[in-house]
Measured scan of single mutants.
Amino acid sequence: MAAGGDHGSPDSYRSPLASRYASPEMCFVFSDRYKFRTWRQLWLWLAEAEQTLGLPITDEQIQEMKSNLENIDFKMAAEEEKRLRHDVMAHVHTFGHCCPKAAGIIHLGATSCYVGDNTDLIILRNALDLLLPKLARVISRLADFAKERASLPTLGFTHFQPAQLTTVGKRCCLWIQDLCMDLQNLKRVRDDLRFRGVKGTTGTQASFLQLFEGDDHKVEQLDKMVTEKAGFKRAFIITGQTYTRKVDIEVLSVLASLGASVHKICTDIRLLANLKEMEEPFEKQQIGSSAMPYKRNPMRSERCCSLARHLMTLVMDPLQTASVQWFERTLDDSANRRICLAEAFLTADTILNTLQNISEGLVVYPKVIERRIRQELPFMATENIIMAMVKAGGSRQDCHEKIRVLSQQAASVVKQEGGDNDLIERIQVDAYFSPIHSQLDHLLDPSSFTGRASQQVQRFLEEEVYPLLKPYESVMKVKAELCL
């Protein structure tokens, strides 16, 4: 049975990233139509530049190519590739079939990587351009969430054990800070992308030097003109047959890092959902379990974690691919890159769409948070109580021993009897502590235990987050809708 299948058929496997999760716009960027249309555009740009620099290419040939950029006979191309065992030459023939007058000058002087690699770089750039505003929107939604809850005390956790208090907004800023680093890295790697350009079979530009009869300047002009037509500021000066596969490492490393950030955020949300302090959106008709109707599973956060793990592992592909590119190139890269580049971007696209949807509907339960604080705060307040007693004339050592005994009794009630923490009640009825009984409410005010959390939130948002989001103001209103 021949390899390949009808990918629109229910009898043929289709990647869930495309069929179930990723956005239509990201799927289109990695589609065959987008790819092969870009090949034709690159052939047109090459012909236009070659004509401008004096090669015998007519206006009629150029116009014929322009008129057929979208006229792609995919069936013919597939048949040609089956016959020739070469995808680029299959599309040269297919393009030439609908451009008979231009057929002889299509791909003039070029090698397969002229269309293959340059198209990949265009796709990487455009895919990054799709991700950047999506990530900015996630940051914006979380920034709104953090600002609104900047002063809401909550129990902090280290080692997932109760620690000092923080605020809900401050905790959210930990998430935002990681995503801001990801946004900066995505922008950097996007701006650092260079075009492969017009380089020939081993990167020496020998074929173009021959076409222009040894004119170095025209060869350099050709490279520059096509690079500018493709919208790049610069091209690699040095290439082998391909652009260095280190570029793929750079791009997928940034995406993998984004995956790590999203995994951490969504894990926190899942843990908070278990504590009943916070939940992701839950639709009115949504079913959490087929057997347990009360369940409210954090399905979206779980999906993000599941896909983020996949995204983090994909960076190993370009690392290994770059390491086995012998001399000017081997074909070890080809099949692998067809999979890992598309999957990385479709996965990143999915987790950003999902995280935006989550961040637009996060639900906080202040009463649950308050109750958990009441359970733990008495123990945390013991040092403040000791200091207040010393100020009232008591002995630190005597007070410490009193607190120690009462704390152990209260802990026994919590752990052995399943009761509430009654340390404060014990202190309130103990005559030894009568000098500070009137101060206990103040000493137990949760806001006095959150330090500068709310001020940190305000400063972080104003100095770091809002300036970073400013270039994306025009796209901030787009909502994230999930079908599944």
Rank of each mutant, 00 (worst) to 15 (best):
G451F: 02
F345E: 02
T58L: 13
H97Y: 14
Q241K: 03
V168Y: 06
L135E: 07
V92D: 03
K295D: 00
E463G: 12
I339F: 14
I269N: 02
R374F: 07
L209V: 11
H93I: 08
H442Q: 12
G203D: 00
G96K: 03
I122D: 00
R137P: 13
E250T: 12
L132T: 14
C180S: 12
T204K: 00
P100D: 11
D349E: 08
K415C: 08
E462Y: 13
R296A: 07
M26Y: 00
A260T: 01
V364C: 10
A127Y: 00
R85W: 09
K187D: 12
L53Q: 09
L307Y: 01
A411Q: 08
G231T: 06
T347A: 14
P162Q: 12
N185Y: 10
G418K: 01
L314N: 08
H93P: 01
E383Y: 05
D144R: 15
Y34E: 06
T244N: 08
M299R: 01
V198W: 01
V368G: 04
A102F: 05
I424W: 13
F28S: 08
R270S: 04
T202M: 07
G394I: 06
G5L: 08
H86R: 00
V429D: 13
T166N: 06
A348G: 13
G231S: 10
F282H: 08
E213T: 15
F232W: 05
Q325K: 01
M292R: 02
R245Y: 01
P133Q: 13
R459S: 13
L108V: 10
K147G: 11
G156V: 01
L423V: 04
E328L: 02
W326I: 10
D191Q: 08
A348F: 04
L165D: 00
D215I: 07
G203C: 01
S334W: 02
D248A: 01
P435Y: 07
K218T: 08
K170I: 00
E213M: 15
F28W: 07
L165G: 00
Q161P: 00
P24H: 09
N336V: 14
C266V: 11
R300Y: 10
F95H: 08
I436Q: 02
A2C: 15
S395W: 06
F236D: 05
V198E: 01
L319E: 01
S67G: 11
L469D: 02
P293W: 02
E370D: 14
L362D: 04
V465C: 13
L443A: 05
R194I: 05
G5Q: 06
A143S: 14
E280G: 04
Q184M: 13
L46M: 09
M225C: 10
Q184H: 11
P162A: 06
P471S: 15
A110H: 01
N68R: 09
V414D: 02
S434Q: 12
K276Q: 05
A235M: 15
P435D: 08
I427V: 14
L272C: 08
L461W: 07
L42M: 07
D59L: 11
A392G: 12
S151F: 09
E80Y: 09
F195A: 06
H107L: 04
M389Y: 06
F157I: 05
V115L: 14
E283L: 12
E302C: 02
I249F: 09
H310N: 08
G418I: 03
Q397T: 08
G259Q: 00
V88K: 01
K246I: 01
C98Q: 15
L362Q: 06
G169R: 01
F145V: 08
E473S: 15
M312F: 05
R245V: 01
K75L: 10
M299D: 04
D216A: 10
Q375I: 07
K66Q: 12
N421W: 00
S9C: 15
I339Y: 04
V189G: 13
E148H: 10
N421K: 05
R426H: 06
